[in-house]
Design a protein around this nucleic acid. Structure first.
Lengths: 137, 137
DNA sequence: TCTTGACCTTCCAGTGACTGGAAGGATTAG
DNA sequence: CTAATCCTTCCAGTCACTGGAAGGTCAAGA
């Protein structure tokens, strides 16, 4: 099948699929007219990539996952370790965003948000927030 | 002061400070020997940038914040609107990460993680997870 | 047969926000 | 005088695409 159909079936944009070929994640056949020709297993691979990317795995991690997937002898513990690491990265990002939020929220809350030029948010960014506690060191 | 001291005082790496000059966020003087010469207000500006970047504002948003900061006539509502938008972006990112987590966690939980090749995580990625619900559509 | 439009190809460049490194000049301490 | 440290510029790489230009191919309709 052509790239358009492979795109539809995998959920990935055609541009992305070509890019994945550039970086050797898929290797479709070529038809006589030069068009890429995707097999069902190519599409399978693309769907795998789509899912794994959606789960937050990097391209290199996807590459590893694909090789583990096709390795009859791999242990599930290898994959589990990667997934667990991903989970802890996700937790760390959530924590970071929440601390960002708790730094920004009080500034928004105490900004009157009217036409006057006085603005606690800018004051804090400037590093002289007056009586208010500094948000960042 | 030289870039090294400006770096220490602002908390930004020298490389980053030079980059900020490239993109016209700061414009230090030059000494006779060609070295950059940072004033106290340059450092002030760099600290402002450092704080704003840490709060999740993009470079372009920082540029805008800086211009609002030096605009005697700006209304605090302008800044508040930006900060509120930032907050909702942060909330959206947190929600996304949490849904990522709730997709990945059950896979990790049900993977036995031993030497056997059977692995629910890869099965799910491959799109044929058996009796388990598919994590992704 | 011709034409239109959809689809495909390659290649180049840009994104955001830096970061690393090479090659070389300036300054400072001993 | 020398060695170490600091500074300079410039180029290239990161990550994972994405946009666009220029042009080839194909299927359907007049």
């Amino acid at each position: 099948m052509n790239i358009g159909e492979a795109s539809e079936r995998s959920g990935l944009p055609a541009k992305t699929i070509r890019y994945y070929e550039d970086i050797s994640l898929v290797a479709p056949d070529r038809a006589d007219n030069g068009y890429r020709d995707y097999s069902a297993s190519d599409v399978h691979r693309l769907r795998f990539l789509h899912r794994a990317r959606n789960l937050g795995f990097s391209i290199d991690e996807c590459r590893l996952l694909l090789s583990l997937y096709s390795d009859r002898n791999r242990a599930s513990s290898d994959v589990k370790a990667m997934a667990e690491q991903k989970l802890s990265e996700i937790d760390a990002k959530i924590a970071e965003l929440q601390s960002l939020k708790s730094a920004l929220q009080p500034l928004v809350d105490c900004c009157h948000g009217d036409d006057r030029p006085d603005c606690p948010i800018l004051d804090d960014l400037a590093g002289h927030g007056g009586r208010r506690a500094q948000v960042l060191a």
